[in-house]
Structures are given as structure tokens and as C-alpha cells.
């Protein structure tokens, strides 16, 4: 839409040449107010994120309390060994990335789909009530969800098994069957998060100018056409943002979901173990700052590589959607 508009704010060509030479301070002076408006964010991220980032150094030390961050002995890559030598890193990486990909895709498709339906359906009351309902699960912690999932799936008195038995079928041992959890975990994730994402898309749809639809209607477009030709293309920037955020954290699993719902059931691990649960299990008994940081660093580097690739790809397709 606006990519065609010339970048007026950047000034004329000659002006740009000067600003490049004069650099930062020239810009600072010219855009004083904008810079000032950035101060809260700068302070926030400096304190909350960048200063604590020195802690990454923990990953390379054998921590002790007297030495603290900088005087504990340097051990190189030793803290990474519990990841790399576990023989599970490949499986864990595949699981983590795999689940996240499925989460991202299925959630976004459903969210866009329902956001569109909700934005178009008539009946204010219906709209309000249903929106509230699909949003509510976001408040439920996975600890509580675990109790509900257990109530539904357990072998002896679970809803599903009671039903199967009354239908004369065999009981199904959910908690002893790894593969079904690939589906159940995705359902749990969707249950909790679809409402949240739907709100994001709904807000984006609300921001679309009515004029476009007006024009389309005049051209004789039906509802489906309006949706596919106007709404969906205009949701792409929002989708890209959600995607980029999800992709950056692709090595970080939904720890609470996996940990609370599966608990310590080793039988299911081959299908349900992700990097976060593995690290937690390994370190829970004796929290080691060095190893914990090392695991985090692995996730970060992996995420950074993936995100660089994704952003590059987005940039190639449409530079306007790229994040940076």
C-alpha cells in the first residue's frame, strides 16, 4: 500500500548525503522529540535485557559464589557437554522445532479463520459471548488444565474411556501410548491460545477500511471473494509479525504445557520430550547456573540462525514486511 510512497521524511537526496556524513548526532538533533519518545523503551530494554545479558558468560564458567560472574573459573564449552553428549540433542531439537511448527501453523490458521468469521457474523450478542468464551482458556494455567485432561483421558474413570466401555469398545491407554500425545498436546495448546491470537487478528481486521469492501461489493464480489481478496491479504503483515516472533523462539518450547500435562511419565518422552523439559529435569535437583545458561544459549543461537533465514526470506518476498 504505502511502499510506493516516496520516503519523504528521509529528506532530499542531497540532504541524505549530508546526514550520512553527520551521522548520529545530526539525526539526534533533527529528531529530538522522536528520540526522546524512545527513552522509556531504551531504559526498559537496557535494564531488563541488555545489562543482564552479561550473564551469558556464565555458560562458560564453573560457577562459585565467591567468584561470582567474572571470577569463577573459565571452563570453555564444558557446560554444553550435558546437551551435546546426551545423545538426545537431535531428538530434542526435532521435537521442539516440530511441535512449534505445528503450533504456529495450526494456531494461525484457526485464528485467522475464526477472526474472520467473528468479524462478519451478525448478532452482536452471539459475537460477544462466543468471543469471551474462546478467550477464557487463556487464563487457565496448565497445572489446572492437567487435572482436566487427566479427568478426561485417564484409564479407569476418564470420560473417553467410560464412553468407550459403554459402547462396548476396549479401553484406550492414553498415558501409555506416546503417539496420541502429539495430537493431544497440540489440542491443549490450541485450546489455550486460539482465543488470544484471534483477538490480535480481530483487531487487525477492525483496522481495515470499510471503503475496500464497499468498492468490492460494487464490483460484485461475494463474501468469500471479499475475504480472500481483501481481508486475508491485509492480514499478512500481522501474520508475519506473529510468525517472526514465533520463529525466534522456535527452540523454546511451551515448557509449562509439556511439563504439567506430561509430568514425569518417561513412557511418553520419546514423543513429548522437548529441550526445555529435558533441561529442567536434568537441572531441577541442583540448579547449575552454568549449565542452565548454556542450554539457553544453545536455544538462542539456534533461534537467531532460523530467524535470520526467515527474515531474509520475508525481505526477499516483500521488503515491507521484514522486521529488520
Amino acid at each position: 500500500m504505502y511502499s510506493k510512497i516516496s520516503k519523504k521524511g528521509g529528506g532530499t537526496l542531497s540532504n541524505e548525503g549530508i546526514s550520512r556524513k553527520k551521522g548520529f548526532f545530526y539525526e539526534l538533533k533533527r529528531k529530538k522529540i522522536l528520540f526522546m519518545m524512545l527513552i522509556p523503551a531504551m531504559v526498559f530494554f537496557a535494564l531488563n535485557s541488555y545489562l543482564p545479558m552479561v550473564g551469558i558468560y556464565y555458560a562458560f564458567t564453573k560457577f562459585n559464589f565467591q567468584g561470582g560472574l567474572f571470577k569463577s573459573p573459565f571452563v570453555g564449552m564444558d557446560n554444553f557437554r550435558f546437551l551435546f553428549e546426551s545423545g538426545k540433542l537431535k531428538q530434542l531439537t526435532i521435537n521442539t522445532v516440530g511441535y512449534n511448527v505445528v503450533f504456529i501453523l495450526s494456531a494461525n490458521i484457526l485464528e485467522v479463520f475464526f477472526a474472520i468469521l467473528l468479524s462478519r457474523v451478525v448478532g452482536r450478542m452471539f459475537k460477544k459471548v462466543s468471543q469471551s468464551i474462546i478467550f477464557l482458556p487463556y487464563f487457565i494455567s496448565y497445572v489446572v488444565l492437567n487435572a482436566v485432561v487427566f479427568a478426561i483421558l485417564n484409564c479407569d474413570s476418564g470420560y473417553i474411556n467410560t464412553m468407550l466401555v459403554s459402547l462396548g469398545a476396549e479401553r484406550f491407554d492414553f498415558y501409555g501410548t506416546p503417539w496420541v500425545w502429539r495430537i493431544i498436546l497440540v489440542l491443549c495448546y490450541l485450546w489455550k491460545n486460539v482465543g488470544y491470537g484471534t483477538v490480535v487478528y480481530l483487531a487487525a481486521i477492525t483496522g481495515i477500511s470499510e471503503e475496500y469492501y464497499e468498492a468490492a461489493r460494487i464490483d460484485g464480489a461475494n463474501i468469500i471473494q471479499q475475504i480472500t481478496r481483501i481481508t486475508i491479504p491485509l492480514l499478512v503483515p500481522t501474520f508475519v509479525i506473529l510468525l517472526i516472533f514465533a520463529v525466534g523462539g522456535i527452540m523454546r518450547g511451551q515448557f509449562d504445557l509439556f511439563y504439567q500435562v506430561i509430568r514425569n511419565n518417561g513412557v511418553l518422552f520419546e514423543a513429548t520430550d522437548i529441550l526445555d523439559t529435558y533441561v529442567y529435569r536434568s537441572l531441577k535437583q541442583n540448579f547449575d547456573v552454568g549449565m542452565g545458561t548454556a542450554a539457553g544459549l544453545y536455544q538462542s543461537v539456534f533461534g537467531l540462525i532460523i530467524i535470520m533465514l526467515t527474515n531474509g526470506l520475508v525481505k526477499k518476498l516483500n521488503p515491507d514486511y521484514a522486521l529488520f
Binding site: 523503551a41 541488555y50 551469558i56 556464565y58 525466534g248 547456573v289 537467531l304 522486521l323 529488520f324
Partner: peptide, 29 residues
């Protein structure tokens, strides 16, 4: 769009979701 550093600042902000120093230094700070 006329803010020259917008992409760089966006990146710096986004970067914090990927890299973190962990809980301990943050807590201490």
C-alpha cells in the same frame, strides 16, 4: 519512516526475545 534508525532499534528490541542472560543477573540487577 523518516526515523532513520527505526530498523536498527526494531532489531535491538526484537533481539531481546532471542538472547537473554538468564534469571540470575537480571534478578541481581
Amino acid at each position: 519512516r523518516d526515523f532513520k534508525y527505526r530498523n536498527r532499534v526494531s532489531f535491538l528490541i526484537y533481539f531481546t526475545t532471542i538472547f537473554g542472560g538468564g534469571m540470575v543477573p537480571w534478578y541481581v540487577l
